[in-house]
Design a binder for these strands. Structure first.
Lengths: 234, 234
DNA sequence: TGTATTCTATTTGTCGACAAAAATTCAAGA
DNA sequence: TCTTGAATTTTTGTCGACAAATAGAATACA
């Protein structure tokens, strides 16, 4: 039961190793448990998960493919830094995906979709009530991803998923100093979005997506400006 | 020099193995040298490239991350089939990316960009003159990717790259039976796009992107209808 | 003849080991 | 003390081997 050199090692089905490590590392990166820019030690991970380096490396290759880590050839691999220089490009892409997925969801959603989306929205509302920042971030991303999936365009869904992932790291900074009125506003906006999608109002769904995105962008922008000022005064 | 069991094996720098295999397989998949849906044999590839299965597997993991192959756990890995059921989603995404990258290129391009884009357009024009279908496809994709890069949004560029890649396989079918007037029309449209981008006319650039996309979508759609009819008459 | 079951063969996922490359330490000389 | 260069340690990329999982062949049974 107690193995000092393999804390998370358990009996697993063959073939599940890489996925296990991938999921664990992904969450730790997105929740900022692993600091952006910090080094990743393959051997350490192998010991921690109680497996050889082979499945660890497979997980790292997959993470690198999604831009969550960076591998320097023959040298260390790092947790991808948050690129504040390209933050404008990020906001552009995020806003467009909010609009597009909103519109497509209104166009292509099927009966079960609204049920799923509503359930995830309830999860988000609960997290807001409980003031659980990590849960807010995760449930918010799940909610918007469900809308994207209702739009039934895997290309947009994949990009949006990547953007929401990257956003989890930024929001993790944001929610550390959040104004607690804002999440409540998001709850209301989410409900408007669901109604517009259910009513198959393409234009309104897209517009609400844009408004919602602008809301978030504006808040993060304020946060960044404040951070910059803090940097300057140090 | 002659090694019967490792045709492509040569002295390489350490660390280049996976990339070599990745590039080679990627080209063979996109040029339809490897048939969509066909199985991939790791051992065979290892022998062909004269290396062990480890770097081969790394290349396969990366290709799977980009959706170019599909891995069935504990079973074979196959070249990703062309998904004609989702072709509508593909066209939607492609059209939007043509528009967005056109607009952003007009907004953010820097001096060197126009030079690069013009050079790639010249390559495309040459391929059209030479009636070299494979070259047309490759240079066309490179041209549009250069426009995307001038737009300086890595998220859009990455999605567009993936779409253009996937498109290479579809166009490979298309150009087997192409009407030779069409590529010439594309040459003219490309030149209009360059002019609009250089003039920093955001609206026109976006509109030309849309027109260009519609052009391609319409042609591929016609092709698909024809193929369907052929299927029915068999 | 058709179906179920055991056996065999192929293929995949994982492992431990080794060598190349880089990072680090240490020593020598200015 | 600082720089240069050699020696050592650490870390990565690759390899060959083995075992689990599956597919296919062979056999038994109805």
């Amino acid at each position: 039961m107690t193995e000092k050199d393999a804390p998370e090692a358990v009996e697993r089905r063959r073939g599940s190793g890489a996925k296990l490590v991938y999921d664990a590392l992904r969450d730790e990166i997105l929740d900022l448990v692993l600091a952006p820019g910090s080094a990743i030690d393959e051997v350490e991970l192998a010991e921690r998960f109680g497996m050889s380096r082979t499945p660890i490396r497979e997980a790292l290759v997959r993470l690198a493919g999604e831009g969550l880590i960076e591998t320097l050839p023959n040298r260390s691999t790092l947790v991808a830094p948050i690129d504040f220089l390209n933050i404008h490009a990020y906001f552009d892409a995020l806003t467009l995906m909010y609009r597009v997925t909103g519109r497509l969801a209104a166009e292509h959603h099927k009966p079960g979709d609204i049920v799923r989306i509503t359930a995830l929205q309830a999860d988000f509302a609960r997290a807001v009530e409980a003031q659980d920042a990590l849960a807010m971030i995760a449930t918010n991303a799940a909610f918007h991803l469900a809308i994207a999936e209702a739009g039934r365009n895997p290309y947009f869904t994949a990009l949006f998923k990547r953007l929401l992932d990257e956003g989890r790291r930024i929001l993790r900074l944001y929610y550390q100093s959040y104004d607690d009125r804002l999440p409540h506003r998001f709850v209301g906006e989410h409900e408007e979005m669901i109604a517009a999608i259910a009513a198959r109002d393409l234009g309104l769904s897209e517009q609400l997506g844009r408004v919602h995105a602008d809301q978030i962008v504006e808040q993060v922008r304020k946060l960044l400006v404040r951070e910059e000022r803090l940097d300057l005064t140090l």
